[in-house]
């Protein structure tokens, strides 16, 4: 079941388009914002709210990389693996974080604190290497900065 708040926020978005279905991506983002990821149940809830079939909603959800159809950690680390960050050494940053947290790309720590995901260019190329944690950008990364940076995310 959608919460009252979720339903309200989705309703606000549907007003911006000629018909409710067009707010499908917004609805998925809203639900993910509240629950961390999008479960099968959430797909069904959105489908009935926007008068769509479940498959239709899942087709949309599975297309977009920032919509998570599996649970992720409380904090998601997106490491840029595009070319400017490659030249400037994202691999050593990834190796360090991966070793420190004991997880690889696509995995979540056993305490549910972090997930690491590779990501395409974050638009920080002039300050490469770069990554995002949740909504925050970090760039000009070096291994020395990482411990302190991760501390902020519990």
């Amino acid at each position: 079941m959608l919460s009252e708040k979720e339903r309200e926020e989705i309703l606000e978005e549907t007003k911006l388009y000629p018909y409710p279905k067009a707010a499908c991506i917004d609805a998925l983002k809203i639900v993910q914002h509240h629950r961390g990821w999008i479960s099968d149940e959430a797909i069904a809830d959105i489908a009935s709210e926007l008068d769509m079939s479940r498959d239709e909603v899942d087709g949309v959800a599975s297309f977009y990389t920032r919509l998570y159809r599996k649970p992720v950690g409380r904090n998601v680390i997106l490491i840029c693996d595009s070319v400017s960050c490659m030249i400037m050494g994202y691999e050593s940053i990834y190796d360090y974080i991966s070793k420190k947290l004991g997880i690889k790309f696509g995995e979540t720590t056993s305490d549910g604190r972090f997930t690491i995901i590779p990501n395409t260019c974050l638009g920080d190329c002039d300050h490469a290497p770069a990554l995002m944690i949740n909504n925050d950008h970090y760039n000009n990364l070096s291994i020395e900065k990482i411990d302190l940076m991760l501390e902020k995310y519990q």
Partner: peptide, 11 residues
């Protein structure tokens, strides 16, 4: 949308 690797101008 600016997702072309190497691009950060519209930002």
């Amino acid at each position: 949308d600016e997702m072309e690797p190497g691009t950060f101008k519209d930002r």
